[in-house]
């Protein structure tokens, strides 16, 4: 079970990272999106605990989507008020990204228990990955502007994944 769980988290994480790549032009944006997604993901799964044993299981995803949309809107509004520099860089992509990542995490993991455990693990991995990709692209982007273009995000993610696989001597996925 635990092995299966690990595999599930890796696949979920990879799907989330690929969606989040657009925000990784610098360490700051990468980390910010990572943290924002984590807050929404963890809070949503927490609140889902109220519904998951009571509501019909085929309706749970609807509750999940409403909650994600709600929390994303709130985070977007608060960011607009207190971190305008971030909005200047990410603009409307910020809420779009948070919402997409949270939905994709739910769909890919196929998790019907809405467990905090998986949300927490995915979040930590997501913040770390976006932070590392962000810092690599920011540093290299100073000399090679191509690193700030979209394809470079996938290249960076792929190479980092290969390095990570090498270090841990096993398949990352």
């Amino acid at each position: 079970m635990s092995k299966n769980n690990g595999k599930k988290i890796s696949a979920t994480l990879l799907a989330a990272i690929c969606t989040g790549l657009v925000a990784t032009t610098s360490l700051r944006t990468g980390l910010s999106i990572g943290i924002a997604v984590s807050i929404v993901l963890i809070l949503t799964n927490l609140i889902m605990n109220i519904f998951k044993d009571r509501a019909p299981s085929n309706m749970l995803i609807l509750f999940y989507m409403v909650l994600v949309a709600f929390l994303t809107s709130i985070i977007y509004i608060i960011t607009q008020a207190y971190l305008p520099e971030l909005i200047a860089e990410l603009g409307v992509y910020m809420p779009i990204l948070i919402f997409s990542v949270c939905i994709i995490v739910q769909i890919v993991s196929g998790e019907e228990n809405y467990s905090i455990n998986i949300a927490l693990k995915t979040s930590i991995g997501f913040i770390l990955a976006l932070g590392v990709i962000g810092i690599v692209r920011e540093v290299l982007g100073k000399n090679y502007t191509a690193m700030l273009e979209a394809p470079a995000a996938f290249l960076t993610a792929g190479i980092l994944l290969a390095i990570a696989s090498g270090i841990f001597n096993k398949k990352a996925i």
Binding site: A55, P56, M59, L62, F63, V66, L67
Partner: peptide, 11 residues
């Protein structure tokens, strides 16, 4: 489920 549909709308 009518009850839960209403709860969803309320939410």
């Amino acid at each position: 489920d009518a009850k839960w549909t209403l709860i969803l709308v309320a939410l």
